[in-house]
Design a protein around this nucleic acid. Structure first.
Lengths: 98, 98
DNA sequence: CATTTTGATGCGTTATACCATATCAATTAA
DNA sequence: TTAATTGATATGGTATAACGCATCAAAATG
């Protein structure tokens, strides 16, 4: 819906894809129905904190409240790279078939 | 209710107090009724993402999803000190009248 | 003291997240 | 081609967040 909730939704989707999980696999891990995950990722659901935490945890993510003055510092650590652990080998961002 | 949602609630409360805001002042800033803020801070409400973001923003906080392997690094930056900017001068944690 | 501010609580209503379940088109695998 | 798998979507029911509004006791303030 609004700006930053959309952003959160996209982060969840990216993280799931980086882990090579299907929505149904994530559903099983997080205990949230696949249909709901779909809605959440598409960004038109104002999900509850419990759902957010459950899904985040299943994606090896932790929810945090960062004082605004530290956000850039935190970003430089996290590198806006969404947890590229395990799962399918992460494809490179470039493409040799130019 | 559960563990980490309780923690979020406490963070919000601490941040508000550190800024020297009353629940009603925060209510005006965040556009969330005082009665609801009270419930949220007491930890027995599973609030929605939009509410969380609205309140966090009014407290100079930003919501973030941190990959688990980076949480300790992030914590060492933020220092688990909840944004002690502006507002009433922060009282010292000690007390000279022993 | 009297007054104001503060956080907590209650109630009735509305909006909507959440669930189970099912279906479907498009993709991917056999 | 046939058979999974995947993401999106629909329906109907339940749970509950969120609202406005009011009230209250305790604490702070004058």
């Amino acid at each position: 819906m609004n700006y930053s909730t959309q952003y959160i939704a996209q982060q969840l989707k990216k993280s799931r894809e980086n882990l090579g999980l299907s929505q149904r696999e994530l559903s099983a891990r997080a205990g949230v129905p696949q249909s709901h995950i779909s809605k959440i990722e598409s960004g038109n659901v104002d999900l509850r904190l419990s759902s957010l935490v459950a899904i985040a945890r299943a994606l090896e993510l932790e929810l945090a409240l960062i004082p605004r003055k530290y956000v850039s510092a935190v970003n430089s650590i996290v590198g806006s790279a969404g947890s590229e652990t395990s799962g399918q080998p992460p494809r490179p961002a470039y493409n040799l078939d130019g």
